[in-house]
Design a protein around this nucleic acid. Structure first.
Lengths: 144, 144
DNA sequence: TAATATACTACCAAATTAGTAGGAATATCA
DNA sequence: TGATATTCCTACTAATTTGGTAGTATATTA
């Protein structure tokens, strides 16, 4: 069930943009350095996020990326779906016709339950929520 | 987030054994035919399930596989862990030292929540539970 | 001993994933 | 206008994982 680096890096990158929301554009070079990801690989991930409408790019010197929507309007399930492709656990979960045995299938019950549990978590949380929680934890760590 | 065929086939195979519990040993040939999986591939999966102590093998003519424990004593999280390897979404979830940024990391919060949601579902259900539910559904389909 | 099964080891092919490379297009600033 | 900084685009490649096959050894039953 491990997530692909594509999803992991992609989410980390969009979170950087979310934390930077309201400031100017953030360059890949900066994100790459902060997150320890190659600029060239990030380029590809950002292209995906861009075509899905989550981020906007500004070309040229002093350019970079910014979120296309406020961070409290971007839910994690949308981002996952965009990066991970299928958020589902098995084909038959969403397409009953995929397998003849689907109707009385014991296995399909568990695939479905896991799938729904994941979706429920991701639907309920936005980029802003995550940042707030992280700040709460980070602050606690610094013993303020 | 798609499960590997390893996990999907493995769970389906062990469910066949669970449904057969109390009868004699079940041959891979039979499971393979019912589930549409190659015998040779099943062999490998059963070897994994065997070394983890979920099933026992009986060699020779009239041999086959049986569950090593009653089906209500085998939880799905154990089976998943055995087949899938890591049930976790990212390394840092279970190993905080894996990444320096782990403490205040917004991304890690979501990896963790998804991970916990999956575990919660799988911990709460046994092979027997699944079979019971499937029978309930199957019965409904047959309009009894 | 013949037939039937699992056990074990090795190998292989396809697909996916992760990452690199190079240069073109574009915007900024001096 | 020219130097620089940045995204954009396309292609390539290396590594890993996945899914599967083959052959032989070993155990059991009849």
């Amino acid at each position: 069930m491990k997530l692909s680096t594509r999803t992991r890096y992609g989410v980390r990158a969009i979170l950087e943009l979310a934390e930077n929301a309201g400031e100017g554009p953030l360059q890949l070079r900066i994100i790459a350095r902060r997150q320890g990801i190659s600029v060239k690989y990030l380029e590809q991930l950002m292209a995906v996020l861009k075509s899905a409408g989550f981020v906007r790019s500004i070309r040229g010197a002093k350019g970079g990326y910014i979120l296309a929507k406020p961070p409290d309007k971007i839910r994690l399930d949308e981002v996952f779906y965009c990066l991970e492709g299928t958020v589902t656990t098995a084909e038959c979960v969403e397409d009953e016709k995929y397998c003849q045995r689907a109707a009385g299938c014991a296995a399909r019950i568990i695939w479905t339950q896991v799938h729904e549990a994941i979706e429920k978590v991701l639907e309920a949380i936005t980029l802003q929520d995550l940042i707030d929680k992280a700040n709460a934890c980070g602050a606690a760590n610094y013993h303020i």
